[in-house]
Design a protein around this nucleic acid. Structure first.
Length: 276
DNA sequence: CCAAATCCCTGCGTGC
DNA sequence: TGCACGCAGGGATTTG
């Protein structure tokens, strides 16, 4: 569930609380998340001052001394919170980072689809080598109509699943893919290679607007997602199609109905009238 | 080579 | 009330 706006919101909340603090120790409570949790490796490398917290794609990067960093991916149900050292652990608390000033940073993940690991960077400010496969950040200038058109013209299948591919553009998940296509008035069923440069411009702009608007609202809370302070993101109130199957289209003057279909094993929501 | 299907995991809602 | 089942979806892996 956490897509780019949710991860960005979490980063923004963690920066003032965590940057400059010292990690003293790491405790794991389960052997694996999506990948095995290597407690030995984590304890050895994840310690010292947190120099910065960055986001790339749906990953958080906690920069540490010695070009070490902690990589965190929240999967579907991951969350972070800060508590006093003595506070009891809750169900599904998977990794605990002991901090200075008698506090701890806790990673909770019901379904264990997340990733917590350490990584050595080639230089400060560099990204982990495994991130080389990622496409552009959707809010950066190198994600634009010309780029998207160039990619999509090689995509024969329906456009929507391609928007969720992290090697094409990062950070767009199931919710924002549906919402962006609605805003652009493009059907999720349209073959990628039939989408014109002009439509790519519209789609590109829509992706940027939807993501920026959601970040402003603190992300989308559907069920599990919470900001680190426990509050909910407000973008759910602005969703136009996601989760609205059977309801009226919200576009002014449109008499369409929101449909729900399955694409690539995921639900897609779209208006049967104003998305062509 | 590309795309669709499957799997990982837990909680929740539904129908019988 | 309880149980079986489907669904939620990020992403790696498998299958077609």
């Amino acid at each position: 569930m956490p897509e780019l706006p949710e991860v960005e919101t979490i980063k923004n909340a963690l920066v003032p609380v965590i940057v400059g603090r010292k990690i003293l120790d790491v405790i794991t409570t389960v052997p694996t998340l999506r990948e095995p949790l290597n407690q030995k490796e984590l304890r050895k490398n994840i310690h010292g001052n947190v120099l910065a917290i960055r986001r790339r794609a749906k990953f958080l990067i906690f920069d540490l001394p010695g070009n070490n960093c902690l990589i965190a991916h929240l999967g579907m149900t991951g969350s972070f919170r800060v508590e006093p050292e003595k506070a009891p652990l809750l169900k599904h608390d998977r990794v605990v980072f002991l901090l200075d000033r008698n506090e701890k940073l806790i990673y909770n993940d019901i379904r264990r689809f997340g990733v917590i690991k350490n990584c050595k960077l080639s230089a400060p400010d560099k990204l982990p080598e495994e991130f080389a496969v990622f496409g552009p950040e959707p809010l950066e200038k190198n994600f634009n109509a010309r780029y998207l058109h160039e990619i999509l013209k090689r995509c024969k299948g329906p456009v929507k699943p391609f928007l969720m591919r992290q090697d094409i553009v990062v950070g767009v998940g199931n919710i924002y893919a549906s919402e962006s296509l609605f805003m652009a008035g493009i059907s999720p069923l349209r073959p990628g290679n039939e989408i014109t440069l002009e439509e790519c411009k519209s789609l590109c702009d829509s992706i940027k607007r939807v993501l920026r608007d959601s970040i402003k609202q603190g992300g989308t809370t559907i069920s599990d997602y919470r900001k680190p302070d426990g509050s909910e993101g407000k973008f759910v109130l602005r969703l136009k199609v996601y989760g609205r199957d059977g309801q009226e289209c919200k576009k002014a003057g449109c008499k369409g109905t929101i449909e729900k279909i399955r694409q690539g094993g995921r639900s897609t929501f779209y208006c049967n009238q104003c998305q062509r």
